[in-house]
Design a protein around this nucleic acid. Structure first.
Length: 599
RNA sequence: GCGCCCUUAGCUCAGUUGGAUAGAGCAACAGCCUUCUAAGCUGUGGGUCAUUGGUUCGAAUCCAAUAGGGCGCGCCA
C-alpha cells in the first residue's frame, strides 16, 4: 500500500470508473488525476475524471460526476463526496485517514516521500563541468546547486541516479593553462626572462595570470626541480621546447585545478559519483567510433557554411570542413566536427562523451548547463538522437544568469575592485545553506536576483530563515517535552503510537494535509525536473506550522505542551515531530542542513 | 537577421503539466503586541496573467504573430 494518500484514493477512483465505464481506454484513465483542492471548502481532494471521460463516454460531465459520487460514497475512509463546478468530484476524507499519515511519517522517518515512480531507470545527471583552469566562480554556482538537488530529487523519486562531472581537459584551454603554470614554474626557479617575451612564445599569449597558479608552479619545482627547464649561459632558467614538458605540466596543472574545484564543490556540499575526462574518452576511441557511426549513417559531409548573421567574426574566411547533418534532427544549421588544424571541435568530443555515457548504461541523460550554452542544445540533442535513435533521450536544463545584489544594487564582479568573484567567497559571506536554498527559490529557466542582505536576514520574507526557523521551533518543542518528562517517549518511534483523535482544528488539519502531499510533491517535481518546487513546498509547510504555533500566542490552551493533558499533548507532539521530519526530508533533497536552534 | 529563455498585484515571485472565484511574501492601509510561544500577529485593499488572434466543455498554462528584456550565433569550451 502506498504511503501516498492521493495515490491510494486515485486507485479507488479508477476502480469505480472502470466499473462504471468498462470501455474507456487505458491512456484516458492515465490522465485521471486526484489532486489536493486549493480551497478547503472543496474538501480534501478533487478528481477531474468526469470532465475527462465525458467525451469518451458521450455523456455530460455532470451525469458522470453524479454516478461517481454515488459510487465513491461507499468507499472506505471517504466521509463526503460532492459534484461541483463544471464536473469536478470533490472528496472529503474521514479525518482519521488523513491523520494516519503521521504514524507513517514517524515510522519511516526522512525516507518518507521516497517513491518508486522512477522504476529504477538509470539517469545520468551531468552538472558543473567547469573547465579545470581555475577555481569555481559564482557563475558556476546555480548549475551546481540545481544539478545536485535535481539528482537528489530524482533519486528520491525512484530513479537510479549517477551524478557526473565532465572534465574538459583536451582542448586549447588546458594547453593555455599548462603554459601559464609553466611560467609560474620558471618564476619559482628564478628566471630573469621578461613576461612579455614568454607571452610571445605561448600560443595565444599568456592567459590565466591569477595568483592561484603560483602554488602549482611551486609544486612543479618541488617535484621536478629544474628538469623541465633549460639553463641559459648565465645559469638562469629558460623555457625548454614545449614537446619536452607540455604534456607533463598539463596533466599536473589539471590535477591541481581539479583538486581545487573538488574542494570548492565540497564547500558547497556537492559530491559527484563520476568524473569523466574528455581526454580519456578520446584516448579510448569512443569519439572516433561515434563519428564513424555517423559517417556510416551518411550523416557527415564536407561542406562550406554560410557566415553567421549579425556580427561577423574578424577572421572569417570561407572554408570547407567536416559537417554533421544536425539540420536533419531539428538544428538550424549543420555543425562542424573538425577544426582547421584537423583536431576535433568541442562538439565532436562531446558527442563521443555522450555516447560514453550511453555505453555505461545511462537510459536518460540530463545535462545542466548555463544560459550561455543555450545555442548548443539543439545540436547536442540532434547528435544523441542520430546515434541512439531516440532510445536514450537527452534533456538539457538551462540555468539562467544570477545577478548578485547588495543593498539592492548589482555587485560588479571585479578582482581589481576587491569584490568577490569566486564561489568560495560567496559561501564565506552568506554560508553554504543560504546559498543552496536561495539558488532553488526560482525556477531555473528564469533569471534570478541574489540579494546578499536578504539571504542572511532573519525575517519572515527570507524563506531560508523561515524554513529553518520552523524546524528549530519543532525541535525546541520536542526538547522541552523531553525535559519535562511528563509526556512519555517523545522520539519518532514513541510518538508513532500516539492517539490522534484530538487533532481536529483547521490549523492542525491543514498541516496534516500538507504533510500528506509530500510524496506527491516529490514525484511531480522529479517528473518536471523542477527542484525549486521543493523549496516552495517547504516554505508553505513552514507557513502552516508557524500559523499553528501562533495560535498558542493568544490562547494558551492551543500550545503544544499541555501540562496534565498527556494524551492531547502526545498527539500534538506527533504532529510536530512529523513536521520536523518532513522538513528534514525536503532539506536533504536540497542539500541543506537543518538547524536545531536559531542563534 | 536567426535560435533559445523570460514577461502574472506597486516590488520580488509561485501557480501541482489544460481545471473551479489566479496565490504568497514585501510594501500600503486598519487593528493588536510592555514577550507564560512577537528575530512579530490578525484583517483589508490591490490583477486586461505584455498585446492580438487561434485550438476546446474549459487557457496564465498549448499554437501563431507582435512588443519589451536576457543569452547565444564557423576553426572557444
Amino acid at each position: 500500500m502506498s504511503e501516498c494518500v492521493f495515490q491510494r484514493y486515485r486507485h479507488h477512483v479508477l476502480a469505480v470508473v472502470r466499473e462504471l465505464l468498462p470501455d474507456v481506454a487505458e491512456e484516458t484513465l492515465a490522465r485521471v488525476e486526484l489532486t489536493p483542492t486549493r480551497d478547503p471548502a472543496h474538501g480534501d481532494m478533487a478528481t477531474n475524471a468526469a470532465l475527462l471521460l465525458a467525451k469518451a463516454a458521450r455523456r455530460k460531465p455532470a451525469d458522470i460526476a453524479a454516478d461517481l459520487v454515488a459510487a465513491l460514497q461507499k468507499v472506505e475512509g471517504i466521509a463526503a463526496v460532492a459534484a461541483a463546478g463544471p464536473g469536478f468530484v470533490n472528496i472529503t476524507l474521514q479525518p482519521g485517514v488523513l491523520r494516519a499519515v503521521l504514524p507513517v511519517v514517524l515510522g519511516v522517518g526522512e525516507a518518507y516521500g521516497q517513491s518508486q515512480a522512477g522504476r529504477g531507470v538509470r539517469v545520468n545527471v551531468e552538472y558543473v563541468s567547469a573547465n579545470p583552469t581555475g577555481p569555481m566562480h559564482v557563475g558556476h554556482c546555480r548549475g551546481a546547486v540545481v544539478g545536485d538537488a535535481l539528482a537528489n530529487l530524482m533519486a528520491k523519486a525512484g530513479f537510479d541516479v549517477t551524478k557526473e562531472f565532465y572534465i574538459n581537459d583536451a582542448g586549447n584551454q588546458v594547453k593555455a593553462l599548462a603554459w601559464a603554470a609553466y611560467w609560474r614554474y620558471l618564476q619559482v626557479l628564478g628566471t630573469t626572462m621578461a613576461q612579455d617575451d614568454f607571452s610571445a612564445l605561448a600560443p595565444g599569449g599568456l592567459q590565466y595570470q591569477g595568483d592561484y597558479l603560483i602554488p602549482v608552479g611551486e609544486a612543479l619545482a618541488a617535484e621536478f626541480g629544474n628538469k623541465l627547464a633549460e639553463v641559459g649561459v648565465d645559469g638562469t632558467p629558460l623555457p625548454a621546447p614545449d614537446a619536452t614538458w607540455l604534456q607533463t605540466v598539463r596533466g599536473f596543472a589539471v590535477t591541481h585545478m581539479l583538486g581545487a574545484i573538488k574542494e570548492d564543490l565540497a564547500a558547497l556540499g556537492v559530491h559527484h559519483d563520476v568524473f569523466s575526462s574528455e581526454a580519456d574518452v578520446l584516448a579510448r576511441g569512443v569519439t572516433d567510433a561515434a563519428i564513424d557511426q555517423l559517417a556510416k549513417a551518411d550523416l557527415l559531409y564536407n561542406g562550406v557554411l554560410e557566415p553567421p548573421k549579425g556580427k561577423l567574426p574578424d577572421d572569417w574566411e570561407e572554408r570547407e570542413q567536416l559537417l554533421f547533418r544536425s539540420t536533419s534532427f531539428g538544428d538550424d544549421v549543420d555543425r562542424p566536427l573538425r577544426k582547421s588544424d584537423g583536431t576535433n571541435t568541442y562538439f565532436a568530443n562531446d558527442i563521443g562523451y555522450h555516447m560514453d555515457k550511453v555505453a555505461r548504461g545511462a537510459q536518460v541523460m540530463i545535462d545542466v548547463w548555463g544560459a550561455d550554452h543555450g545555442g548548443y542544445v539543439k545540436r547536442m540533442k540532434a547528435a544523441v538522437k542520430a546515434l541512439t535513435g531516440g532510445a536514450v533521450p537527452l534533456e538539457v536544463l538551462l540555468c539562467q544568469i544570477v545577478h548578485i545584489l547588495r543593498d539592492g544594487q548589482p555587485v560588479k564582479m571585479s578582482k581589481r575592485a576587491g569584490t568577490f568573484v569566486t564561489l568560495r567567497d560567496l559561501i564565506d559571506e552568506v554560508g553554504r545553506d543560504a546559498v543552496r536554498f536561495t539558488m532553488l527559490t526560482r525556477k531555473s529557466d528564469a533569471q534570478m536576483e541574489f540579494d546578499l542582505d536578504l539571504v542572511v536576514a532573519q525575517q519572515r520574507d527570507n524563506p531560508v530563515f523561515y524554513v529553518q526557523y520552523a524546524h528549530a521551533r519543532c525541535r525546541s518543542v520536542l526538547r522541552s517535552a523531553a525535559e519535562e518528562g511528563a509526556y512519555g517517549a517523545v522520539d519518532n518511534a514513541g510518538l508513532a503510537s500516539a492517539a490522534l483523535d484530538s487533532l481536529t482544528s483547521d490549523a492542525e488539519m491543514a498541516l496534516v494535509r500538507r504533510l500528506a502531499e509530500w510524496p506527491r510533491m516529490v514525484e511531480a517535481a522529479a517528473l518536471a525536473r523542477e527542484p525549486h518546487r521543493i523549496a516552495f513546498y517547504l516554505a508553505e509547510l513552514a507557513g502552516d506550522f508557524h500559523a499553528l504555533w501562533n495560535r498558542g500566542r493568544d490562547d494558551a490552551s492551543l500550545r503544544f505542551l499541555q501540562t496534565g493533558a498527556v494524551e492531547a499533548t502526545r498527539a500534538r507532539l506527533a504532529l510536530v515531530a512529523a513536521t520536523a521530519t518532513v522538513i528534514r526530508s525536503g532539506l536533504a533533497v536540497m542539500g541543506v542542513d537543518p538547524v536545531e536552534e536559531m542563534r
